[in-house]
Simulated assay, not measured.
Amino acid sequence: MKLGLDISGGDFAPRANVLGAILALEQLPDDVELVLIGRENDITSILEEKGVKSDRISVVDAPDVITMEDHPTRAIPQKPNSSISVGFELLSQNKIDSFASTGNTGAMLVGSMYKVNAIPGVIRPCITSVLPTVNGGDSIILDVGANADCKPDVLYQFASLGSLYAKNVMNISDPRIGLLNIGEEEGKGNLLTQSAYKLMKESKDFNFIGNIEGRDLFTGKADVVVCDGFTGNVVLKQAEGMYTITRQLGIKDDYLERFNYENYGGTPILGVNSDVIIGHGISNDVAVKGMLCLAYDVAKSELTQKIKEAFK
């Protein structure tokens, strides 16, 4: 298995990404190879500094960089020699099994849609985030930013995608799907959630348990929480903000520490033809290691193939 990593993306590139790859190499199985994509001189100098020589690491030179300020739609065609563009080219040619980056999220989404394409039948690919639950487990929420405006059939597909992810990557045999709403009753919510509820309650594609409220997000009431990307991103940023505040206040708690982004590394883009993993822009080496380990778990589970089969 070959995992591609964008070395030039993120706030602490290239060093954090190379160091994260070194950490991941120690944890991943021996048959996993890492393909480091970025400015070759930068990558090799850090590897030499750390005394790392391994036939499980290869370097692909990509001299250009797509920055956070670059327009996502224009960046890939305007910078074909960038690490993100080269990474997607390798992915589309099956020269790597997955591609991970902590760089420009918009460019990663655009590359996924136009370089490897959406799986036939998927209306809109989406991204997820982990919700640590008080019982020690994890739930996921989707979408968290790729699709700010959604229609009911899109939310229905998010439920299907989330259920497949929970089954195959999180190893939950019969994931409970909840629709995030302002009340538990069927008639609550706006036109979107009311219509989505009607579609989802009749589904045989997943285990729909009904509406859940914001207070239920971290209780484990649902394994998969479905919402539009605008709402999901607000939830995600609120959770990140509360974690930051607890750290600033000096509050130490094992449960609250599970909100540290370093624990999760990244999230896959669900619904595209290849495995694409997006990491947080502020990722350090530990988070990059986690992102690569997630990339391995997703590839090993054959999640993309199982989504293709489900959406035939």
Rank of each mutant, 00 (worst) to 15 (best):
A118V: 11
P120F: 03
P120W: 03
V122T: 05
V122N: 03
I123S: 12
I123P: 03
P125C: 08
C126A: 15
I127E: 00
T128A: 05
V130I: 15
L131W: 09
N135F: 01
N135Q: 09
G137A: 10
G137E: 13
D138T: 10
I141Q: 04
I141P: 02
L142A: 06
D143Q: 14
D143H: 13
V144A: 00
G145R: 05
D149H: 06
K151P: 08
P152K: 13
V154G: 07
L155G: 10
Y156H: 09
Y156N: 04
Y156D: 02
Q157P: 06
Q157T: 09
Q157S: 08
A159Q: 02
S160F: 02
S160Q: 11
S163E: 12
Y165G: 01
K167M: 13
K167Y: 02
N168R: 00
N168P: 05
N168L: 02
V169L: 09
V169H: 08
M170H: 07
I172R: 09
D174A: 14
D174K: 15
P175G: 11
R176E: 07
L179K: 08
N181A: 10
N181I: 03
G183C: 03
G183A: 10
E184S: 09
E185R: 01
E185F: 04
E186S: 09
E186N: 08
G187R: 09
K188A: 06
K188C: 05
G189V: 07
L191M: 14
L192C: 10
L192A: 08
T193Q: 12
T193W: 08
Q194G: 13
S195N: 15
A196H: 12
A196Q: 10
Y197P: 10
Y197M: 08
K198V: 13
S203K: 14
K204H: 13
